[in-house]
Computed example of a mutant assay.
Amino acid sequence: MIFPAMDLMDGGCVRLLKGDFSARTNYAADPVEVAQGYAAAGAEWMHIVDLDGAKNGATAQTELILKVANSAKIKVQTGGGIRELSQVQTLLNGGVDRVVIGSLAVTNPQMVKHWLETLGPDAICLALDVNQSEDGEFRPAIKGWTEPSKKTLWDVLSDYLGSGLKTILVTDIGRDGMQTGGNLDLYKRIQSDFPTIDLITSGGVGTLDHVRDLKALNPHGIIIGKALYEGAFTLDDAITC
Rank of each mutant, 00 (worst) to 15 (best):
M6N: 06
L8F: 01
L16E: 01
K18D: 07
E33R: 15
A35F: 07
Y38A: 03
A39P: 12
G42Y: 01
G42Q: 10
H47D: 00
D50W: 00
N56Q: 13
T59E: 07
A60M: 10
A60G: 04
L64T: 05
L64H: 05
A72Q: 11
K73N: 14
T78A: 05
T78I: 06
G79V: 11
V96D: 02
D97E: 12
D97R: 10
R98C: 06
V99T: 08
V112C: 06
W115S: 00
L116A: 03
L116R: 02
L116V: 09
E117D: 12
G120A: 05
D122G: 08
N131F: 10
D135H: 04
G144C: 01
K150R: 15
K150F: 13
L157D: 02
S158L: 08
D159C: 11
L161S: 09
G162Y: 11
G164F: 04
L165F: 04
L169D: 09
G174T: 11
G174M: 06
D176H: 01
N183I: 09
L184D: 02
D185N: 14
K188L: 12
S192R: 11
F194W: 08
I197L: 10
I200P: 01
L208R: 02
R212G: 12
H220S: 14
G221M: 03
Y229L: 13
L235V: 01
C241G: 12
